[in-house]
Computed example of a mutant assay.
Amino acid sequence: MRELDLKALNSEKKNGAEAISYILETMGPSNIALASSMSIEDQVLTHMILNVNPKARIFFIDTGRHFQKTYDLMEETMRSYKFTYEVYAPEREDIEEAVSKLGPNFFYESVDSRKKCCEIRKVKPLKRVLSTVDGWICGLRREQSPTRQDVEIFEWDNGNSIYKINPIVFWSEEDVWEYIKAHNIPYSNLYRNGFRSIGCQPCTRAVQPGADIRSGRWWWEDPDKKECGLHLGTAHSANH
């Protein structure tokens, strides 16, 4: 793995496609993967990365609890860009044990229970794919959540011991929509029905106009706890 000077890279403020081009060229396309949840941010990044390299790696974690509209968008995106996602799913034994012992809706019971569900359905599959790369690209933006205020474009992910690149971290939601419209990028029509952040169906709902972007995610929890575990453990701008 090539060592990156994160402080210097972040001071250069490489943005969007420039950050993607840099990391693909530096690390090699087989050693970098874009994580897509089919959000508007990830749709923007899918467009960018495939423009840079049509054979770039893009993966989707199929938790088994997504909206049907998410799967429909997945099909539409593959047709539009003529590529296929790498798909990772939870371990069968983990799902069977949790649901058998705790019931299908155990994640509503407490923050710890919800985090256990996220660990099984999202975090463990993520670790499997990240074990195959030196870095991953994400659609995090600072304005999305109080837990993301310090995110940088180039980071070291302590939890997974790889680099993490957030090319549109300084973009506003308006910036994302402008890019989508300018490039005719497919996106979920759930956004037309009051959704501003989309995850698993049982844990996501529409929000009122003007509400916090992620207020519809795990709405029964405090805002400072609203992470699933995919984006914890990052050392911001510290060199590896």
Results as ranks from 00 to 15, higher is better:
residue 121 R to S: 08
residue 105 N to H: 12
residue 155 E to D: 13
residue 122 K to N: 08
residue 113 S to V: 02
residue 138 C to K: 11
residue 146 P to F: 08
residue 137 I to L: 12
residue 102 L to R: 13
residue 111 V to R: 11
residue 127 K to L: 13
residue 114 R to I: 00
residue 135 G to E: 01
residue 133 V to W: 02
residue 134 D to E: 13
residue 123 V to M: 04
residue 150 D to M: 07
residue 141 R to N: 00
residue 136 W to L: 07
residue 128 R to A: 13
residue 128 R to C: 11
residue 137 I to F: 05
residue 131 S to I: 02
residue 133 V to C: 05
residue 114 R to V: 02
residue 106 F to G: 07
residue 125 P to I: 02
residue 151 V to M: 12
residue 135 G to D: 00
residue 131 S to N: 14
residue 127 K to I: 06
residue 115 K to W: 06
residue 150 D to C: 07
residue 118 C to M: 03
residue 125 P to F: 04
residue 115 K to L: 15
residue 134 D to I: 01
residue 136 W to Y: 07
residue 152 E to F: 05
residue 143 E to D: 14
residue 128 R to D: 10
residue 112 D to P: 06
residue 140 L to C: 04
residue 132 T to E: 15
residue 122 K to T: 01
residue 105 N to T: 09
residue 104 P to H: 08
residue 116 K to Y: 12
residue 104 P to W: 02
residue 113 S to C: 12
residue 105 N to D: 15
residue 118 C to I: 05
residue 145 S to C: 09
residue 155 E to F: 00
residue 109 E to F: 14
residue 129 V to K: 10
residue 125 P to E: 00
residue 146 P to R: 11
residue 145 S to F: 01
residue 136 W to D: 01
residue 133 V to T: 06
residue 134 D to Q: 14
residue 141 R to Y: 00
residue 134 D to N: 14
residue 135 G to N: 02
residue 155 E to H: 07
residue 156 W to L: 09
residue 135 G to K: 07
residue 138 C to Q: 12
residue 105 N to C: 07
residue 153 I to C: 11
residue 151 V to I: 14
residue 124 K to R: 13
residue 143 E to T: 12
residue 150 D to L: 11
residue 113 S to T: 08
residue 131 S to F: 04
residue 118 C to G: 04
residue 111 V to A: 11
residue 141 R to I: 01
residue 136 W to S: 04
residue 138 C to G: 11
residue 102 L to Y: 14
residue 119 E to D: 14
residue 123 V to R: 05
residue 148 R to W: 04
residue 119 E to N: 13
residue 129 V to L: 12
residue 112 D to N: 14
residue 141 R to Q: 09
residue 104 P to V: 02
residue 117 C to Q: 03
residue 145 S to G: 12
residue 154 F to H: 00
residue 152 E to P: 07
residue 110 S to A: 12
residue 144 Q to T: 04
residue 124 K to H: 10
residue 120 I to S: 09
residue 114 R to F: 05
residue 140 L to Y: 00
residue 118 C to F: 03
residue 150 D to I: 02
residue 102 L to K: 15
residue 144 Q to M: 07
residue 142 R to H: 07
residue 138 C to I: 11
residue 107 F to N: 03
residue 153 I to K: 08
residue 156 W to A: 01
residue 150 D to F: 06
residue 124 K to T: 08
residue 138 C to F: 01
residue 130 L to M: 12
residue 108 Y to E: 11
residue 102 L to P: 08
residue 115 K to S: 12
residue 119 E to C: 06
residue 154 F to S: 09
residue 103 G to S: 09
residue 145 S to W: 01
residue 134 D to H: 13
residue 103 G to Q: 11
